[in-house]
Amino acid sequence: MEALFTSITAVAIAEIGDKTQLLALLLACKFRKPVPIILGIIIATLLNHAAAAWFGSLVQQWLSPEVLRWLLGLSFIAMAIWVLIPDKIDEEDSKMLKYGPFLASLVLFFIAEIGDKTQVATVILAAKYESLVMVITGTTIGMCLANVPVVLLGKLGVEKLPMTLIHRLTALLFFALGLTTILF
């Protein structure tokens, strides 16, 4: 259960203000059809994070426990720094909008997650915890917790969030995860 709750928390908080959350807002404003957008987000996240978790489990097998502990701890600390850098949506992403809400959401979210903070976090979490199912489930729920309200509410509340504070709290969370991984 620790893997599930840590994955949900880390990804849900890290996703706030992330490029894919901005993408969810763009899709919601463009299509105004939340169900196909949300389904596209869920499927893209499941596929992307399953691949990331699988890679994380391979990393866990290749490295000794001591090296893995330091690598994971330092990776969490690096994530803390990375979270402080705000994301912007690429103009290339907007070209996919002509394919409809479901396909655009599926493809754009899958591509946007490649190398994204939450995908890297999924790799790290999968290397830390043995239960890939719990990590994938947790990271997918975390993505949904951050993105579904954006899709449902559109621009209403997203622009009023204290993004700097959220990014700092997220960085603090990842830094604490890094320290506890190294020290314990």
Rank of each mutant, 00 (worst) to 15 (best):
G73E: 05
L26F: 12
A50Y: 15
L25V: 03
G73K: 01
A78N: 08
I77D: 09
N48E: 14
W54R: 06
L84G: 12
S64N: 13
F31P: 06
A44C: 02
K88D: 11
A78G: 11
A28G: 03
L58A: 10
F31T: 03
L84M: 15
G17F: 07
M79Y: 09
I81C: 11
I38T: 01
V83N: 14
Q21R: 10
M79H: 09
L27E: 00
I81W: 15
L26Y: 10
L74Y: 11
N48C: 14
P86K: 04
I43L: 13
W62Y: 14
I37E: 00
A44H: 02
F76T: 01
L72K: 04
P36A: 02
E66L: 13
D18S: 13
V59K: 03
L63Y: 08
I42V: 15
P36G: 01
K30S: 11
H49E: 02
I81A: 14
G73M: 03
A28E: 02
L25I: 06
L27V: 02
L26T: 14
S64E: 12
S75G: 14
G17H: 08
S64Q: 10
L22E: 07
V35P: 05
I37C: 00
F31V: 08
P65N: 05
N48S: 15
A51L: 15
P65I: 02
T20F: 10
G56L: 00
A80V: 06
L68C: 05
K33L: 08
D90V: 03
L63C: 01
V83K: 11
C29G: 15
W82F: 11
I41D: 01
F55R: 09
A53W: 07
A24N: 04
S64T: 13
R32V: 08
A28V: 07
Q60W: 14
A52V: 01
I43T: 07
I43P: 03
A80K: 05
F31G: 08
P36D: 00
W54T: 10
P36L: 00
D18T: 04
W54A: 14
D18I: 03
W62A: 11
A44R: 00
P34G: 01
K19V: 09
L71F: 13
A44Q: 01
K19H: 12
L26V: 15
R69W: 03
G40V: 05
L72E: 02
K33C: 06
I77N: 08
I89A: 12
K30Q: 12
R69P: 01
E91V: 07
T20P: 02
W54S: 09
D90N: 14
P86D: 00
E15K: 01
I38M: 10
C29M: 15
D87A: 13
L71Y: 08
K33D: 07
I81V: 15
A78T: 08
T20L: 05
W62Q: 14
L84F: 13
R32D: 15
I16E: 02
W82C: 01
K30V: 10
I43E: 02
S57I: 09
L47D: 05
A53E: 02
P34T: 00
K88H: 15
K30I: 07
I16S: 02
Q61Y: 09
I77K: 07
S64F: 11
V59C: 10
E91F: 04
W82G: 00
L84E: 07
I43V: 13
W54K: 09
A28I: 04
I81Q: 08
T45K: 04
